[in-house]
Amino acid sequence: MSARRISYQEFTKTAPAAQAALLAMGKAVEQTDLDKQLVELVKLRVSQINNCAFCLQIHLTAARRIGVPQEKLDLVATWEEAGIFTARECAALAWAERLARLAGHSVSDAAYAAAREHFGEDELMWLSVAIANINAWNRLGAAFRFIPPIAKQAAA
């Protein structure tokens, strides 16, 4: 069995200002005109890449609540091959993967230009903020192995 790590509840109690800042960043994205379903798909894909079960479960729940089609939830991990995502969704998912996998790479002009074909400058900025925000949450959730809420309910 793995060593005990910091729980989400301990994180929120010990670092309330950090939690509030991350939540505020997410709220700022929510207040934009970006399509909420698109943002949830991006958060799901980045959470898959970063192996964050906590964020994945939270954003699956959020995506279902706002009506993201089940087929898209089922296939977001293989979005390039699925053939069910719009060109705009594909551009957002490609951008999300590029920003989630920055280690040792820069973001090329070609990747930026491809994203800009589907997003205005402000939209791409806010999409990038959403990606940065979920990346930050993922790093905390994965580092401390925050237990997904549904797993807690199942264990009870």
Rank of each mutant, 00 (worst) to 15 (best):
A87G: 11
H59Y: 01
Q57P: 00
L73W: 03
C55S: 03
A113H: 01
F54G: 08
I49N: 06
G104R: 11
C90H: 09
A77R: 03
D109T: 13
S47Y: 07
H105F: 07
A87V: 14
L38Y: 07
V68Y: 06
A77V: 14
A114Y: 02
K72S: 06
H118T: 02
I58K: 04
L56F: 00
A87T: 10
Y112S: 03
W95I: 12
S106R: 12
R116V: 00
A103L: 04
H118M: 07
Q70H: 15
M125D: 06
S106G: 15
E81N: 14
R64W: 02
W95T: 07
G120D: 13
A77F: 08
S47C: 03
A103V: 05
A91E: 01
A103G: 05
C55D: 07
D74K: 06
C90N: 14
A62F: 08
E89L: 15
V76S: 08
H105S: 04
A110Y: 01
Q37E: 15
P69S: 11
L124T: 09
I66C: 07
T78W: 09
E81M: 12
R64Y: 02
M125Y: 11
V68A: 02
D122Q: 10
A53P: 04
C55A: 05
L41P: 00
A82T: 08
V42Y: 00
T86P: 04
E121W: 01
V46M: 00
A103P: 00
F119W: 03
V107E: 14
A62P: 04
A92N: 08
C90R: 12
Q70A: 14
A113T: 12
E117R: 11
L93Y: 10
